Computed example of a mutant assay.
Amino acid sequence: MNAHIDVKRLLPIWEQFRSTTDIAPIRDDAHYARMTALLEALLDEAAGDESHPAMELVDIVGDLIEDFEADHYPLPEATGVQALQFLLEQHGLKQSDLPEIGSQGVVSEILAGKRDLNIRQVRALSERFGVAVATFV
């Protein structure tokens, strides 16, 4: 890759991209809602394929959402596993009540920290509990 970037050429391209996608630091709750919807659409497009080109945008949009949430909806620090444990308790669920994640054994391994959640599981948990995908990442 060329180390020299032609900024004069880059800026009009960036402005077109930004105005088309609205991908930028999140300004308010309405922009947050649009970015969350965009994240969901990108995840749908990638369909669990970690090498899909949409995953690079997932990282960027996810970071923007995470920054906004940290500033506007601060939560105590918790891992995705801790969030899952909390939600299970709040909803009175057992490990076997999460078939969308996998078998009871798979859920047990995730809760024990022996296995990470994958994109499909994160999406399923987000939809099941009505929380942001970032909750489990």
Rank of each mutant, 00 (worst) to 15 (best):
D63W: 08
D63T: 14
L64G: 09
L64W: 11
L64K: 07
I65L: 11
I65G: 10
I65W: 06
E66L: 06
D67N: 11
D67S: 11
F68Y: 15
E69R: 06
E69N: 10
E69T: 07
E69D: 15
A70K: 04
A70Y: 01
H72C: 07
H72I: 04
P74R: 10
P74Y: 12
P74E: 14
L75P: 12
E77K: 08
T79F: 02
T79I: 01
T79Q: 07
G80E: 10
G80P: 14
G80W: 11
V81E: 12
V81H: 06
V81T: 14
Q82P: 06
Q82H: 01
Q82W: 00
A83F: 07
L84P: 09
L84F: 04
L84A: 05
L84H: 06
L84R: 02
Q85W: 04
F86A: 08
F86L: 08
F86Y: 13
L87F: 14
L87E: 15
L88C: 13
L88I: 15
Q90R: 13
H91Q: 14
G92H: 03
L93W: 03
L93Y: 03
Q95P: 09
S96V: 08
S96I: 04
S96Y: 00
S96M: 00
S96F: 00
D97P: 01
D97G: 01
L98F: 01
L98D: 02
P99M: 04
P99G: 07
E100D: 14
E100Y: 01
I101G: 01
Q104W: 09
G105Y: 10
G105S: 15
V106F: 02
V107P: 01
V107Y: 03
E109G: 00
E109A: 06
E109P: 01
I110Q: 02
I110N: 06
